[in-house]
Amino acid sequence: MYDPTRLAALVAVSEAGSITRAAERLGYTVPALSQQLAKLEREAGTALLVRHHRGARLTGAGELLVGHARRVLDEMERARHELARFAGLSGGRLRVGTFQTAGIHLLPPVLTAFRRAHPEVELTVTDHEPPSGVAAVAAGEIDLALTHTYEPADPVPLPSAVSAEPVLVEELVLVTQPGHTLTSGTSRLPPAELAGQPLISMAPDHPPRHAVERALARAGATPSVVVGTPGYVLVCALVSAGLGVAVVPEMVARTASTPVGMRLLDPGDLRRTISVVYRAEESNAAADSFRALLRGAFERSASTN
């Protein structure tokens, strides 16, 4: 059975004329979309696309499958719409909070899927740098929020009305200027190798990272530049310019807008967990549907990284 997500990817490429434009339309990275298309070709047992310097075109088999895919996706969208009406999602609103990394790299495909399934629900997306999203959910200002915690970390209890559902766990990795000796190897790097290295630090203004910063200090990393905001884009830019090294979530390293070297750390116990927080005691069909879509999207992201 063909995965509907991969069928939608093939349809998007056929309409956009290139994998790059299709990825932009769907909110995926180009490598992630290419992997989905490769899996679909393996399922089909034949080439579906021919790539050329101006983009990509469908093979005869691809044209055949796209015709069926459009009918399948149309039927699925009709079913979602009818089920939304049945579940009381023919109107209303959903207020979503997110932080920057998830908002840029993970949330767009979920928003697209939710809009397709529930076109009459009003969507609002606001920026909430963790842990502020948790407080906003507890106060009823938003319906759910993407947030994160770090390991190691000082325990921070959730408000009694709020529940958290982990959706993605990723390691923290070392990033350096391209060509740096610390990221030239392929094996995991012991943190002790960071002794004496100038560190781009996000302490003291990023509470979730306090314990991580202390662990790096125990390993001997010396704060060189202190970034007063939790902006990983800026951190990676400073690293790329050679002002120091940093330890960031793997997703941040792989999607950095400036060139950086990357290396896994040993034993990989520095982590970030991305969760969705919501008010568990309230019945909210729109929030429940959105959380289900989130689970599927984050599972796909984890499988393609």
Rank of each mutant, 00 (worst) to 15 (best):
D269L: 14
G67P: 12
R209C: 08
E120I: 11
C236L: 07
D288H: 04
A302G: 06
N284K: 14
L111P: 00
Y2P: 12
G244P: 00
S301P: 02
S184T: 12
M1T: 15
L243W: 01
V276G: 02
S240L: 00
T255Y: 03
V11D: 05
S184K: 15
Q36K: 13
L270D: 05
M251I: 10
V252P: 03
G242R: 00
A135S: 14
L7E: 13
S240W: 00
R209E: 10
S275H: 04
A8P: 04
P159S: 09
R93N: 11
H148V: 02
G17S: 08
A161L: 07
G92F: 10
L37R: 07
A287Y: 02
G133Q: 04
T147E: 00
A61T: 05
E77T: 14
L83Y: 11
S303C: 08
Y28M: 13
E24P: 06
V173K: 02
A161I: 08
M202H: 12
D269G: 09
A153T: 15
F86Y: 13
R80Q: 11
A136V: 06
V173F: 00
E165I: 01
V248S: 01
L49T: 03
R214F: 04
F298Q: 00
V175F: 05
L49K: 03
T5P: 07
E299L: 15
I104R: 03
R214K: 09
Y2N: 15
V169M: 04
M1D: 13
E41A: 15
L65A: 07
L94G: 10
A56W: 09
V30T: 08
L37T: 08
S240N: 01
A12F: 03
H210I: 12
E129H: 08
P190R: 06
L270C: 07
I142K: 09
P230M: 08
L106G: 01
D288N: 03
T46S: 03
A237F: 02
E299N: 10
P267E: 14
A38C: 04
V72G: 07
L264F: 13
Y150A: 11
R6Y: 14
T229M: 09
L106N: 06
T5Q: 15
P198I: 01
V248A: 00
G231S: 13
P131N: 03
L243Q: 02
V173M: 04
R279E: 14
G296T: 11
S283G: 12
A221I: 01
Y278A: 11
Y150V: 04
